[in-house]
Amino acid sequence: MFLERVSWRASKRRPRYMSDLLASLAFRTAMIAFVFNIAIALYGVLSRPSLVKKFLCLVAFTDSINIFAVFIGFRYTPGAYPSPPILEAIPTSPAEVETLINTSVDPLPQAMILTAIVIGIACSIFLLTLILMYYRHYGTTNIHEAEEGEEPHAEAL
């Protein structure tokens, strides 16, 4: 129903392309798919006992959020496919900048995701070392098993 509404509204204003309808479908499918992706990955982090599995799901979780954000910055340009936010000609002219504004996708989410990816890999590295150290202490990466083998109020001294 949503689909019909949007394509109808679009058809009133502009000449209609087949990709118009498909773009709308792609946007909806992909964004909802990534919402599900976020939820499944979060379920994995919270429910699986293995630390490595938790880590894998955490990576999937952050990556899904990042892709979700690229969709926020994407746009549909009738008659052509959008272009990356990069000027190609040197030396360039005001007219080319104007063309870029009409065709390019939003650069800000991309810059933010770049930052988020770097932060993600930084956290990953640290988490991996922590898991390694955990294994060296407990002999397993399964948190249930590790916690069974430990008395609750052991003195750390």
Partner: peptide, 14 residues
């Protein structure tokens, strides 16, 4: 859902 325009902030950056 199918944005045809850039957000104004993104357009300012471009």
């Amino acid at each position: 859902i199918v944005p045809r325009e850039l957000r104004p902030l993104g357009a300012s950056f471009v």
